[in-house]
């Protein structure tokens, strides 16, 4: 009985490892595409599910609390891509900070995101005193 339980546990562990490796290869090596890379891919990028990462361009965030419509621009300094998302962003989503969005790039040049993830730096400091 003990042996049967151990075999079951071994199958579960190997299964979990395979799941992680397959999931990892799919997305982990390059976690996100930059706006420049996306534009360089041209039409081949349209309609493909991907992650796009960059900085939320200052002054670009438009949030409509009635329609839950969120619009902003992701930039890497050279290229910029407008993003549209239905729903509230994470708490720490702010202009000038990094963000990664999951979704698809449309033929109209608009990226439709179904998820937004905030990326932060490795710098930690207390808030500047006013």
């Amino acid at each position: 009985m003990k042996r049967a339980r151990l075999v079951l546990a071994a199958v579960l562990v190997v299964g979990a490892l395979l799941y992680l490796i397959i999931g990892g290869i799919r997305g982990a090596i390059v976690y996100y595409t930059t706006p420049s890379e996306l534009l360089a891919q041209g039409a081949s990028a349209v309609g493909r599910s991907m992650r796009l990462g960059g900085q939320v361009a200052p002054g670009s965030k438009k949030w409509n609390a009635q329609t839950l419509d969120l619009r902003f621009v992701l930039t890497d300094g050279t290229a910029s891509i407008p993003v549209v998302h239905h729903g509230a962003p994470p708490d720490l989503f702010t202009e000038g900070q990094g963000a990664v969005v999951e979704g698809t790039y449309g033929s109209d040049g608009m990226f439709t995101a179904h998820a937004i993830i905030v990326k932060h730096s490795e710098q930690y400091a207390p808030p500047a005193s006013p």
Binding site: L17, L20, I21, G23, G24, R26, G27, A28, I29, Y31, P89, P90, D91, L92, F93, A115, I116, I117, V118, K119, H120
Partner: peptide, 19 residues
């Protein structure tokens, strides 16, 4: 969850740690 907005994602650091 509060800072990135997700519990888990397929990031290289996260995946290699789970491995």
């Amino acid at each position: 969850r509060p800072v990135w907005g997700t519990w888990w994602t397929w990031d290289a650091r996260l995946v290699t740690t789970a491995v």
